[in-house]
Amino acid sequence: MIKVADVTKKFGKVLAVDSVTLDVQQGESIALLGANGAGKSTLIKCILGLLDYRGEIEIQGHNIKENPKFSKSLIGYVPQDPLFYDMKTVSILEFFGSIRGVDDKRINNLLNLVGLEDHKNKLSSELSGGMRQRLSFAIGLLSDPPVLILDEPTSNLDANARGDFLNLVKEHKDQGKTVLFSSHRLDEVYFIADRVLFMKSGRVILDEKPENLASSLGIKVKINLRIPESSIGDAISILNKEGFVSVGSNGSGLYVEVEEGNRALPFEKLIKNNIPIEDFSLQESSMETVINHIEANGY
């Protein structure tokens, strides 16, 4: 569906994208991970034909450089920070709808779908961040294109808005759209992606399924346990004996790091040894941990 063949993009002397090749199948959902400046956005802009580049990019067999208009008509794009003309919400949809040859009925359906029906006469500047992102998504869906490209679509949203938005994307992915999105958050990746590409210094250095991501990277979850003070010492020695490496005390209890998929193990061992667990909390691995891990391990 999306073919990227040996694409290189330089800004001055800086290599922003360095010989990237990738092939996205129809219906596949790809997450682009990587630190800021790794080249994710640049790659997306190349795919959208906004930047000049070396190499070839095809959307459904159509070369973006040779046939830019048609190629772009196959893509719905949701930018990181959607920027609209200061017009009424419905007017914005009508404007882009006209470019894509879409009728008013479709526009009403989309307003309905993204829940902006009640706000359609508001100016874009009066919309909240979540609403703007949903409007942006609605614009992406206008001509019902087979490909959706999202550039960190949730980075400016609060938790609720993010959840709503991710559900929308997921629905469309499940309906068979090809999705390429960049993200900072592992939970989004787990939720939507079929494949994860990790970029560093303009190169794709890892191509993995999300369920294998943690194990292949050896990413760990930190569990904080509250146990009676008297038992802390015993608990630590038990866990050390069971093979947990990173264990230590932390004021009201202890922490232990486990591999993704083995979260229950420390509980099991401690309860078996009659050490009471009063409470616990999980410290999920963040994107930073993943990135740090990958960077540290030199992928």
Binding site: K69, Y77, Y85
Partner: peptide, 14 residues
Amino acid sequence: ENGTLPYLLSHPIS
């Protein structure tokens, strides 16, 4: 400056 130009250009318009 507002960024509306690249966004517009991501649509099928030349």
